[in-house]
Design a protein around this nucleic acid. Structure first.
Lengths: 245, 245
DNA sequence: AAGATAGATTAGTTCGGACATCTTTTGCGA
DNA sequence: TCGCAAAAGATGTCCGAACTAATCTATCTT
């Protein structure tokens, strides 16, 4: 709306957002009911519901029939949110790659590994390691390591014949849902022990992609670490600007 | 709705989605109008609009007042979409970094550079180059290069005293909005000409982050290329699973 | 042939209403 | 005091209507 007045529902949404951000409605509290809001803003319930939908879309509140609308922790540190339009290997990466498992073992998380993986030291986790290939290509795309908490280690029995992302298997197994994936991408020199399996040369660069798959209450269901020779993979994704208020 | 019947609007949304996916409504085509859909499904326009909102939320269509609802390319190859929760340098990167501009010049896009930047060869673009530092740190975070189409090259006059992301300046200048950012991250060995400015060592790895900022109709407003010494930067982002239908 | 204008088309916004469904609260009986 | 059922509260779904605003198309004028 270039120059024209802002729709009412957006005005209401902005005012509510302002109250949330400023702490009038702190995280965990319930917003006023829809009826109360229609009275206060003197607009229709439909307009209020539109405004609340904006807040839900922005991850500020969560509404439940019969319960009300609860303020939840904001998910971003800026006003624009972006939708990922394509992630080339987060999901259904297995769709056009093959994963040749070479080891399945319980390991102790210690020292440097705990740091690299950013998981607690001293625990035992299941580690599944192997080479990943793009279909029809001879050179491996990357070495993939999956780290799975010991309590779900039984998925190790199933992964050999499981098609699809392993984290969905853990979801089934644990009865919990991955709702958040933290991804970190970095560069390094190729680790010595992976030069031969990856058929690459010493003194070359590698792209490291680590992903931590968490539930709603920040429980880690899986950590993956992919090591790509630099010339075999670029991480591409397209982000689209979220609808602006 | 565990076990209970599915809301009408979701049924309608599913049917329309099925038609889009199966090609009955191919990408680029217009869906039937809201009025036609209310007739066909024998439901209210409100129900139709709810269904269309679901399709919009999933990135399958784009609606414009007066124009209709156009089928757009699906953004992901799977049913779940993910919202980016935090991007450490796409937006407000300038918030806690400083950018020391070292060169502003028009250059011809040729050969390898066209390939690296994935922009058309032969054109002239404005290139702004310099070192970026995190606040309070002596070692540069990265070398940043901004490539801007010649038609917006006049922003070069303003960037020296502009705070904030340069692409917002181009938006103001061009009257167009960045709606999509294509990002590609790769690893390489540090380019020779950047070893000294970045105060890093030869034979070390670098993280390359390229972003292409596009409008709705795929016009490129800016391309940025950041070259990070591997030990100074990891690209972190958190993705949250989108609302499931 | 091109540009301007008016009318038609289509989605966006806002209203009011009713009913369904889930959750919470209250009251009553054991 | 506790458990259960009913009532109340609150959001979700669906309907119909009217108006607004952006876009498209057809027609007229130059």
């Amino acid at each position: 709306m270039s120059g024209s007045k802002k729709p009412l529902y957006l005005t209401v949404a902005d005012e509510l957002k302002e109250k949330i951000i400023s702490g009038v409605f702190p995280i965990g509290s319930l917003l006023e009911t829809e009826d109360r809001l229609t009275e206060r803003f003197n607009v229709s319930r439909h307009t209020i519901r539109e405004a609340l939908r904006v807040l839900r879309d922005e991850g500020l509140i969560k509404s439940r029939r019969g319960s009300g609308s609860k303020v939840i922790p904001p998910s971003t540190s800026h006003h624009d949110t972006y939708q990922v339009m394509s992630i080339n290997d987060l999901l259904m990466f297995s769709e056009d790659t093959t994963f040749d498992i070479e080891s399945i073992e319980l390991i102790k998380i210690e020292g440097n590994r705990a740091r690299i993986l950013d998981i607690p030291e001293g625990e035992e986790w299941l580690r599944i390691g192997g080479l990943r290939y793009r279909k029809g290509e001879k050179l491996p795309l990357c070495w993939s390591s999956y780290f799975i908490p010991r309590e779900f280690a039984n998925v190790g029995r199933l992964v050999q014949r499981f098609k699809g992302p392993i984290f969905t298997l853990i979801e089934d197994f644990s009865g919990q849902k991955v709702t958040e994936v933290k991804q970190q991408i970095s560069a390094s020199m190729i680790p010595k022990d992976l030069i031969e399996p990856l058929l690459t040369s010493r003194n070359s660069a590698a792209l490291m992609v680590r992903r931590t798959y968490c539930t709603d209450d920040d429980k880690i269901l899986q950590v993956t670490l992919n090591t790509h020779p630099a010339d075999r993979f670029q991480h591409a994704m397209t982000m689209r600007r979220g609808r602006k208020i």
